[in-house]
Amino acid sequence: MTAMKMDIAHVAKLAKLQFDEQEAQKFEGQMQSIIDMVENLPPLSDSGALIDPENPMIMREDKVTDHCKRDELLKNAPQVQAGCVVVPKVVE
């Protein structure tokens, strides 16, 4: 496999991270060496979907459990108003 290049700016945008120029440079080098390391994988025949039917899931019964009190739930929120979490105005 040929060495993959990582588009730091694009990946950072996807991950919602930002780096200043100096950081970006340091990261670029580090990330490239990490990618050079991990991309050394043996050739494997594609054996299809990533499923594991040997370990089937046990599902949950459709039964209501106690919900959390709103105050408890929002206690950790940085900004709360009218029983809701507040975020900067979203315009879609």
Binding site: M6, I8, A15, L17, I34
Partner: peptide
């Protein structure tokens, strides 16, 4: 943490 997030985001992209 940022390095891992970047690597993980990249390999899934």
């Amino acid at each position: 943490v940022k390095r891992r997030i970047m690597l993980g985001t990249f390999v899934l992209s």
